[in-house]
Design a protein around this nucleic acid. Structure first.
Lengths: 222, 222
DNA sequence: AGACTGTTAAACGATTTGGATAACGCGAGG
DNA sequence: CCTCGCGTTATCCAAATCGTTTAACAGTCT
């Protein structure tokens, strides 16, 4: 296996280049739509070399997904460092999440692409990751929020849905970028600034939405 | 053109069956990943008949996207009937949005798939729709929210980001369903009930998050 | 009967995939 | 120094598949 003995003669970063190229192409064209030739071109290598490293297209996809998925989840968990207060914790989550997705947009798109065509592979890998007790990014925040509810720092609310809402708000703008661009002209002019605004907005809205209710009925404005 | 004279001899719903089949397959496999054979099988017809109705794969995709997109947007706008109060308006939007997406999941997936591979076609069609002064679903709610800010019914907040957050919270669970299932066991057991919970949660969180601040600093819990 | 429409079967050319082959460059080790 | 192994390229190949075209068939209407 080439991955086990990478530096036999020269140090070939070829495998990594293939990984990156395959990730990009698979993320855009999907498992079936991606062409090996396009991946090879993107990696600047011969098509035969793809078969040298990964015997078949299937194995290449599996490897890219497996490796990428594991690395993605691990890195994401790491980037979401635990903070002291709920507020800082939530802020760190949102900021860390968006920053991380920004650096790994292709992986996010690949996972979503898997979702679109059934999600069999994705489910398998995620299930394996959670079963292996690996850190699942959102669960730490959920635990922290649960504690905050107990302490009366935030109001009682369905945490599963809250977490899903947070992830949605952070992730969706990336995968739906072309649509977002139409209404958010700033997202096309200055994407970085748009993301900064987005982070602040999400945290702002969430903190207000989770603030303990002081005699105010839920689901009512005033 | 077959679409102009559908009932020359028999009333063949073939064209519609092709549309539906193509939508389903394109939504899952993407523009390039979709195979005409799979579409034909899904529609229960011969592969050659696809070319009889739509000359090429390109034209089939374009037709499905064009027609589906227009119908989708129009129907969505209609389902989001205007309410009197801001609160009812927002509730109607969230409930209507989720209900509508539920009935048109394939179209939502197709649009997202377009986003993943660049979004050129999607941008063109959406731009044409907005330019033609057609009703863009979110904009009505945005106007209503703006008025509510003026009336002091909700606090001052970036409406573009708020709207994006709302759409994200409603839409993302559909496209990321396989992932959601892992953490939301109810989404797999009883999807309808999950969606009911989801609607209520989103409205609840939003109303709380938009509630006018009474001397409380923004971005702070207490 | 003739014309027209929806439909199918069969075939064509081009592309894709998986794989094989030979050859080349180059470092490592005998 | 020579040889061997490994990464790499070029080239070719068989099989499958894809998109597309063509010819023929089966109804229906006039």
């Amino acid at each position: 296996m080439a991955s086990q003995a990478p530096a036999a003669t020269r140090p070939p970063d070829t495998e990594q280049r293939i990984f990156d190229a395959a990730l990009t192409v698979f993320a855009r064209k999907g498992r079936d739509g991606a062409r090996l030739q396009e991946i090879a071109d993107h990696a600047g290598i011969n098509r035969a070399l793809l078969h040298y490293y990964f015997r078949t297209k299937e194995q290449l996809y599996e490897a890219v997904f497996e490796h990428g998925c594991r690395q993605f989840m691990a890195g994401l968990s790491q980037s979401l460092r635990a903070e002291e207060g709920v507020e800082d914790c939530l802020r760190a989550f949102v900021y860390g999440y968006i920053d991380y997705i920004y650096e790994h947009q292709d992986m996010a798109r690949l996972m979503l692409n898997e979702c679109l065509c059934g999600g069999g592979v994705l489910e398998r890998h995620l299930a394996a990751a959670t079963e292996a007790r690996e850190e699942v990014p959102g669960l730490l925040l959920e635990d922290r929020l649960r504690a905050a509810i107990g302490a009366g720092e935030i109001r009682e609310i369905d945490l599963r849905h809250t977490l899903l809402t947070i992830v949605s708000a952070c992730l969706f703008p990336f995968v739906a970028l072309p649509t977002v661009r139409l209404f958010h002209s700033r997202a096309v002019e200055d994407f970085d600034r748009f993301l900064q605004e987005r982070k602040a907005h999400i945290v702002d809205l969430l903190l207000a939405g989770l603030r303990p209710t002081e005699g105010v009925r839920r689901g009512k404005l005033a």
